[in-house]
């Protein structure tokens, strides 16, 4: 799987590259408009992370270039601009997702994974991890081929863990991903704990081959 990171901030570029490499992606980077255009034309990627504001041109121009090329590649816009217009115009122009800086790396992972999965039109959209199968389209979960019932938030939670397997995800990241901006206080972390406890109970009861573990109280990890 090849991912192109188009981001002018070299530090951020580095962090993203490291995070994606850990997930086993082959990561290439471009720091400005011309470099990016060059790579887009010359190669094919599974996913392109695209910053809107670039030295030498707009990321949206690159986006239309990508769409013209007719290659099957997912595009996720990463931007510091959290304006509705930007989001709408980006998505209208064919971007698959829009991620606002600052974001959690685990969230980036989840987004990249689901963007690539959606891109793969004929393939299996389901996520497999050990004996757990997640079907994001129908929002169903199977363990040992048996469907288990999860509520919406529990599903999102499990999805987040499955897309970041064996990785430590910190509590604020989980709270933000699943409950978004609604969570803003200290008690939210106890709340996350209680929600994960519920999910764990259901997974264990269904005989899942793997468990969500607390890591020193700072976060959780599925393994």
């Amino acid at each position: 799987m090849k991912v192109l990171v188009i981001e002018d901030e070299s530090e951020l570029q580095g962090v993203i590259r490291d995070a994606l490499s850990k997930e086993g992606y082959l990561t290439e980077t471009a720091g400005n408009f011309d470099q990016a255009l060059d790579k887009i034309i010359s190669y094919e990627y599974d996913c392109i992370l695209l910053d809107i504001m670039l030295p030498g041109g707009s990321g949206l121009e690159l986006l239309s270039e990508i769409k013209k090329s007719n290659k099957k590649q997912a595009v996720i816009i990463i931007s510091a601009k959290d304006s509705v217009e930007d989001k709408v115009s980006g998505l209208d122009m064919g971007a698959d997702d829009y991620l606002t800086k600052p974001f959690h790396l685990a969230e980036l992972n989840a987004r990249v994974k689901s963007a690539i999965r959606r891109q793969n039109q004929h393939g299996d959209h389901k996520l497999h991890w050990r004996n757990i199968i997640l079907d994001p389209d129908n929002r169903t979960v199977f363990i040992n081929q048996e469907e288990i019932s999860l509520n919406r938030k529990e599903f999102d939670l499990l999805y987040y863990f499955i897309t970041n397997p064996e990785r430590l995800i910190n509590k604020t990241s989980i709270a933000e991903y699943v409950w978004g901006d609604y969570m803003e206080q200290a008690s939210s972390l106890d709340f996350v704990y209680s929600q994960i406890k519920n999910l764990r109970k259901k997974l264990t009861a269904a005989g899942a081959d793997g468990d969500i573990q607390s890591v020193y109280g700072v976060g959780y990890k599925i393994s």
Binding site: E9, E11, L12, V15, I16, D18, A19, K22, A80, K101, P102, F103, H104, L105, A106, R167, L168, N170, S173, V218, G219
Partner: peptide
């Protein structure tokens, strides 16, 4: 502030792993 914040937070996340 967004970008530096993103860099700092993301680096910490990588470090935590």
């Amino acid at each position: 502030l967004q970008t530096p914040l993103a860099i700092a937070a993301n680096k910490l996340e990588l470090l935590m792993e």
